[in-house]
Amino acid sequence: MNRPAPIGLLRATLALLRKDLLIEWRTRARLNAIVFFALATLLMFSFALGPDTRLLEKNAGGYFWLAILFASVLALGESFRVESENACMDGVRLAPADARAIYLSKALGNALLLVALGTLLLPVMVALYGVKVVTGFVDLGCVLLLGSLALSAPGTVYAAISSNARARDVLLPLLLFPLVIPALLSAAKATTLVLQGDPMNQLNSWLGLLLGFNLIYWGVGFLLFPRIIED
């Protein structure tokens, strides 16, 4: 039996990521859906709290990340639903693609989607909640990037699990929400600091916490993911 020479992890990851992004770009269904979902969530927060602009502005960082978190549940679930149609995952596995490459490509794709979502939500938040970016867009970009990576690393693992289980729509948030609490907490806190000024220089410690969360979960996900999709 002569198997084709396995291509490198990095090349396989990039090829799979390109495939996922291409599918996404051709329909844009997933991005459209989560953007409108997140927009609706942001609107709902303002209705639920009444038109108190000061209150909304003060809590804007938290609402922003809650909207992204809720939308990420939809995005993550969809990212594996695409593969379960026509048993695409088996095809990718037989290609043969390293399972770790599948993980990296899926998680990176999801993180990119969340970064795009966050970028689109920002102007809406400026309009709805009247927030100002005080410490600069570089800081905000860092928070958005690290926060999205932190949501998608464990989220991809859990989406792979729940996409094959019964009642997957219930299971994914139930598993994911308690796990991403440190990420949500630090991302929301860091965003609030970016939007309201950072007189005590706390931003870097929150970013450090997010970075540590990322390192741990990207590492653990990378190691454990092959065990999840093996048959």
Binding site: L185, L209, Y217
Partner: peptide, 28 residues
Amino acid sequence: DKRATWSAVVAILGAINLPIVWFSVRWW
């Protein structure tokens, strides 16, 4: 088989999370 493997993964990820939660809540 799948139940055992998946739940083991979930248990490990959840257990790793607890010290991180502890630290982050302490800071918060």
